[in-house]
Amino acid sequence: MEFASAILLQVLELVLALLVAPLLTGWVNQCRAWLQNRSAPSLWLPYRQLAKLFEKEVVLAHNASGLFRAAPYFIFACMVLASAIVPTLSTDLPFGPAADVIALVGIFALARIFIALAGMDVGTSFGTLGARREMLIGFLAEPALLMVFFTASLISHSTSLSTIVETFAHREFAIHPSLAFAGVAFTMVSLAENARVPIDNPTTHLELTMIHEAMILEYSGRHLALIEWAATLKMYVYSCLGLALFFPWGIPQGALLSNLLIALPSLAVKLGVGGFLLAVIETASAKMRIFRAPEFLGTAFMMAVLGMLVHLLLETGK
């Protein structure tokens, strides 16, 4: 019974992620429009776009290889797997042991490498340019993210996300100053990883400044739909990760269906607030030159390392 409900919760969590992810993107776009005094697009716009893209036929470049066609499916699968691991509704996930935080970073890296290779496949200048920039961001964001996780792991003595969340949410309350550093680093990394404003502009179509959009320039139809969906999923996963690490309250411990009564509303509220804050950050900052990006991410990396140090200095050996 326990196991069956755990499986049910796992499936529920997956389905929820798939369904809610575009909504989160829509919500952020809406908040952004409000803050910038524009009339807001519909909350359901991302869904309509996905539906439209799935309907359209794929226009494939003459020399696109099998890798180019397979990559969207792989990227999508990576993000689905990631969303299955991050605890949102329950910490007792059957898929939880399959991958810990290090493997989670590995999943993001796998998706990144596939999208970069796909960008290089057709051999246009923009694709390679985007791939190169994406890898530039990736090689700094990845270790920074890993160090954020390490800080959490050092506190909870575990790299398993479930255990980390359980430690933070359900053990005796304690203030961890190191998490302040980790939080700053995580915010910076997630902005960069999700192609948000100081690093990349999700709505740009000016070729010279774009990163993510440049890589996927050759994609169309269902392939583009999968990539867009994967991008919204990635943002959802990052948001949930941030919530799980820094605001874990409300994620129930056991695999009981009745827990959903607490978990669902708290998740909705937290995501709503988080999305609004993201829109605020994006509105308040300007996009950086691409060569400021390593500096930005380098700072994030150092912040994450500092978080680890602060933990070792302040929170141990008492």
């Binding site: 304690a174 203030i175 100053p177 190191s178 302040a180 550093f181 150092m302 912040m303 500092l306 302040l314």
Partner: peptide
């Protein structure tokens, strides 16, 4: 909790020092 709280404030102080540095 006071002890923990002051630790937190100390960490924020350090964070601000680093922010000023950058």
């Amino acid at each position: 909790y006071y002890g923990q709280f002051i630790n937190l404030l100390a960490a924020i102080l350090l964070l601000l020092s680093f922010a000023m540095l950058g």
